[in-house]
Amino acid sequence: MVFLQPEIQHIIQTIKLTGDFFLLNGTYKKRNSMFKKIVWSLLLFTGVLLNAQSTGINFQKIDLEAAKKIAAKENKLIFIDLYTTWCGPCKLMAKNTFTDPQIGEMFNKNFVNLAIDAEKEGVKLAKEFKVVNYPSFLFLDPQGKLVQYDFGYYNPEQFLEVGASVVRKKMSQPSKTIEQVKGKMIGDKIENFNAKDHLGNTFSLSKENKKLVVVFIRGQWCPFCNKYIETLQNLAPELKSKNARLVIISPEKPEFIEKTINKTKTEYTVLYDEGYKIAEAFDVLYTPDSETLNFYNSKLKDDFAKSRSDNSGRLPVSATFILNGDKEITWRHFDPDYKNRASIEDILKNLE
C-alpha cells in the first residue's frame, strides 16, 4: 500500500503538459527551463518517495491456496492481515506499520503476505478462526494450520516483535532425525489429504473406496527406489482381484516424477507430496544428518537440490502402509534403512 501526502497528490494532479504549455491551477503558462527543472524535481522526489514506501510489506494478490504452495516451496510461513473497510486501527496499520522498511524487510523474508477483507473474500476465513476483532493477524504454516494469532493496533516496533516471535516458534520446531521418526502405527487413522500426480490429476484420500497400498519413495535419483517400483509391477493383477490400489508418494516435483515413470515404466499413480504433508501425516519425514546432506548435494546436484518443494533436504523413510476403507492402517513395513523394503509376499498376505 502506498500513501502519498495530499500536497504531493495535488501537485501531480494539477500539472498537465500540453504542447509548449502547461496547466497549473487552472491557468495555462508557457514552459521554460525553470518549469522543466521543477517538474523533474517533483518526479524525482515522487519516485524516491514511492521507492521508500515500497519497502514495506509486499501483500500478494493471491488466494490462500496459492499462498500455501509458495510458502511450502520457499519454506516460509503465511501472514494474513484480516481487515474491514470501516476499521480505524486497520487503516492505521496499513498507513503507519505495514509501510515501515524494517517491517517490510522482515515480513517479506519470512512470510507470504496476504491482506484480506474479512467481509468479502475473507468471510469463510473469519468464521474458521472465530475472528471477532479487527484488525486480526493470522500466522499460518504452509498447510494452513494456525501458528499464532494477534489482533489490534501495533506500531512498527511492536509489530516487529510480533513477527519475530512467530519466526522463533518456527525455528524452535526442528525436523526429526531418522532415529526420531517412528511411522504411524497399525490402528491409526490417516486424515484426508489431496495431492496431484505428474499430469495434474488430483488424488483425494477421502474419495477412495478401495484398500490402499501406500508406498513412499525418496526420488528418481535413488536406484533402490526405482528397482523397487519395477518389482511392484508384479502386484498389479493381484491388487485388482483384492479390490486394492497402490499409490506411490514422492517428495519430488512433477517434472522429476516424470523421470521416475520413464525409468521404471510404472503404471501406478505417483503423487507429488508438495510440502511433505503426506509424509508428515504418516510420520515418515526426517532430515538427514549434515554429512549425508552434503554428500547428496555434491553428488546429485540439481536432482536433489531442485527436485523437492523446499531446500530443507528432508526425505521420507521408504515405508509401506496398507489402509482399509476407513483409512485405518491395517499393516505397515517401516525400516529406516532405505535398502530394506516391503516384500510382495508380505503385501499380498496382508491384503487378505
Rank of each mutant, 00 (worst) to 15 (best):
177 T>M: 05
164 A>S: 14
17 L>D: 06
281 A>P: 02
90 C>F: 06
302 D>P: 15
345 E>I: 03
285 L>E: 04
318 S>M: 09
85 T>Y: 06
182 K>L: 08
184 K>L: 01
194 N>W: 13
107 F>G: 08
174 P>Y: 00
49 L>D: 13
325 G>D: 00
113 N>A: 12
169 K>R: 09
133 N>S: 14
190 I>C: 01
25 N>Y: 14
341 R>E: 02
327 K>P: 13
21 F>C: 08
78 I>R: 04
321 F>Y: 14
337 D>L: 00
89 P>S: 06
40 W>M: 12
219 G>E: 11
92 L>Q: 09
270 V>E: 10
8 I>P: 04
278 I>V: 07
192 N>Q: 03
210 K>G: 01
95 K>Q: 08
190 I>L: 00
68 K>S: 10
30 K>T: 14
243 N>C: 00
247 V>H: 06
340 N>F: 06
175 S>Y: 15
46 T>L: 05
342 A>W: 02
257 I>L: 13
84 T>G: 02
169 K>S: 08
85 T>P: 00
352 E>F: 02
125 L>T: 13
217 I>A: 03
210 K>T: 00
283 D>L: 03
161 E>A: 13
7 E>H: 10
55 T>D: 08
273 D>F: 14
295 F>C: 08
161 E>N: 10
299 K>N: 02
328 E>H: 04
139 F>Y: 02
223 P>A: 02
118 A>D: 10
64 L>F: 06
112 V>R: 05
194 N>F: 15
169 K>F: 12
238 E>G: 02
255 E>K: 11
19 G>I: 05
324 N>V: 00
